[in-house]
Simulated assay, not measured.
Amino acid sequence: MRITSVETSVVALPFTMGGPHPPFAGRPWDRLEILLVRVETEDGLVGWGEAFGHAAIPATKAALDSVVAPLAIGRDARAIEPLTRELMHATHLLGRNGAHLYAISGIEIALWDLLGKRANQPVWALLGGRQRDSLPAYASLLSYANDLPLVAKNTAEARAAGYRHIKLHEVTREAVIVAKEAAPDAAIMLDVNCAWTPPVARDMAESLAAEGLYWLEEPVWPPEDAAGLANLRRHGMRLSAGENTAGLFGFKTLVEAGAIDIAQPSVTKIGGIGEMLRVFRLCQAHGVEVIPHCPYFGPGFVATLHIAAALCERPLVEVLWLEMEANPFDPWVRARDGQVAVPQGPGLGCDPDPAILARYAMAPPVRTETRFAA
């Protein structure tokens, strides 16, 4: 069944976050922007994907519209693995990580949605999973720039909302301490977004050693410094990383270096669901736990629900701690009582609300298409 069109669109959703909106890429970050990928086949069936993301959307969208989508037109939508491999090979001179790989990820997720719809099965079933109605989630707090009262306030509110695991995006021991005091029965994680060189990371790990963190996430700059991470791990801190890692072989480097306890591949960045499967198999063979990275708000988040439901022994889904004005994929992108529901319908199990797409559209969709002779 051939692909007849690939359409890209962006919606921007206003949100509140329990504090001031931080600046990002030269402007206030006060909208959640989703780069949606709509793939249609010659029988009129439609699948939805999401490509990374955030401030990278203009670059990813340009890669999709100008390079990746034209390469996908006319190809068999059912042959996901060979098509993805050929797209990766065709674009590898343009970079093995970044905009073109993000673009491929969006199309690949949409192809899995199509595959499930055509088979009348949810993606979690296609992946060999058993039925789970819901999964435990963790609240991923945004950065409050070490404003300790805001850290304490939002941690307490997240715990009151039913979350038993809460992640901070701060860079100080003091933030961890006030979070623990605000939610003493919750597991606290700390994501510093590659803030420290290895020597500084070692000092920080020593200062945090007694605080009982559930994990310390991306402590080392640059993120590909597997040796630096491995050296830090010897200090007894449980380390997680992977959202910036380029595909299976990037994770192979981390795993073989003994650098991580928890791998965090990201479906909208790594090449899609198929590459996530390969990372899971690698990590399972080496005793490394996988907890996918998924601070997303559309098909990327929903795809992660299916992946976690099918493949994670101890699933834990990341949910950004914020309140959206609306979302075209409600209610599947929101948690309730610390749990997220898993769609049971065919494919991803949810299509976007067209009225919300239209209301929050940033610009008209761009469609790459062709017509076939009868």
Rank of each mutant, 00 (worst) to 15 (best):
V333K: 00
A69V: 10
L45W: 11
V178Y: 10
S105A: 14
A373G: 07
R31I: 10
A263H: 09
L148M: 11
F372L: 15
T172Y: 11
K61R: 15
A139E: 09
Y138S: 13
F251I: 09
Q131K: 05
V366H: 08
G212L: 08
G345M: 15
L248V: 14
A374V: 03
R281P: 00
V123G: 09
P58S: 05
A69L: 07
A175P: 08
E318A: 08
P23R: 09
A263Q: 09
S266Y: 13
G98D: 11
D351Y: 07
H306L: 08
A125W: 01
L126D: 03
I260F: 07
E170N: 09
V279I: 15
A125Q: 15
V267G: 08
L32E: 14
V151P: 09
A175Y: 06
L87H: 01
A179E: 11
F52R: 11
T245W: 03
G19T: 01
T60L: 01
L168E: 12
R27Y: 12
D133P: 00
I356K: 14
E313Q: 05
L94C: 01
H54P: 01
V290G: 12
G128V: 02
R314D: 13
T16C: 00
H89C: 01
R27G: 08
Y296L: 15
R233W: 02
L142T: 12
A179F: 06
E86Y: 04
G287W: 00
R130H: 10
Q121I: 00
G349R: 12
E40G: 15
V319M: 04
P315R: 11
R334W: 07
L348N: 11
G242V: 04
K269P: 09
H235C: 07
I307D: 06
S207L: 03
A158F: 06
G338A: 09
N146D: 14
A90P: 00
P299S: 15
P122C: 13
L216A: 08
G128L: 06
P199W: 03
H89T: 03
G345N: 15
W332N: 01
W332G: 03
